[in-house]
């Protein structure tokens, strides 16, 4: 009997109380921080990365979730440090990254730009990665680099309490901001 009550409290009452408080106090976050347009279409979630391939957008990190940024199949690539497969993948990605952004063969490529994240849904890229992609994006959009740089700064998530974690540029928010200035 006591076990049954315990089960009802832990599995029924507790999640429902959290549900109630969460929906009242933080409705946006509790429902996935969704980005919804005026006509009601869901464009994605602020917290989840999306794939971008066009030159006028900033590109996210390589993703191992499903066929890339599949938000219902999160996960990493799980290749080890001495994996031949990982080595060839990184080699290809580096070549592609340099061509795409018009970089010389000597330019060091930021690690986050050529490695897959743990979740496959990493919404961020590093500041250096954004800086290297910036000239390409500005050129494709015929805007000044200063304007784009301003938006990059506005869409950078700083470390929590200024010491926890690393700063990252939120790719989806940045690309939406770029689209909205036109």
């Amino acid at each position: 009997m006591a076990t049954l009550i315990l089960a009802v409290v832990c599995c029924g009452v507790y999640p429902l109380v959290v549900y109630g408080v969460a929906q009242l106090a933080f409705p946006r976050q509790a429902n996935g921080s969704l980005i919804v347009t005026k006509d009601g279409t869901v464009r994605g979630s602020e917290l989840l990365g999306q794939d971008f391939t066009e030159a006028k957008y900033f590109h996210p990190r390589p993703s191992a979730a499903g066929n890339g940024y599949d938000a219902a199949n999160s996960g990493g690539r799980n290749l080890g440090p001495t994996s031949q497969k990982l080595d060839s993948l990184i080699k290809e990605r580096i070549a592609a990254y340099r061509t795409e952004n018009g970089l010389s063969d000597q330019t060091e490529v930021p690690a986050d730009a050529v490695t897959a994240s743990g979740s496959g849904l990493d919404p961020h890229i590093s500041l250096r990665n954004a800086e290297l992609q910036l000239p390409r994006v500005a050129k494709a959009r015929n805007t000044s680099e200063t304007k784009v740089r301003e938006l990059v700064a506005q869409n950078t998530d700083q470390p929590s309490l200024s010491i926890l974690g690393e700063p990252g540029v939120s790719v989806l928010k940045l690309n939406l901001a770029l689209d909205s200035i036109e």
């Binding site: 799980n78 930021p110 897959a116």
Partner: peptide
Amino acid sequence: IHHQLGVAAADGNMEGKEVRFG
């Protein structure tokens, strides 16, 4: 091995890690 391919050595090993955690 990856540094030799041209990955920035200062970034450390980012495979399987999230940017926000580093």
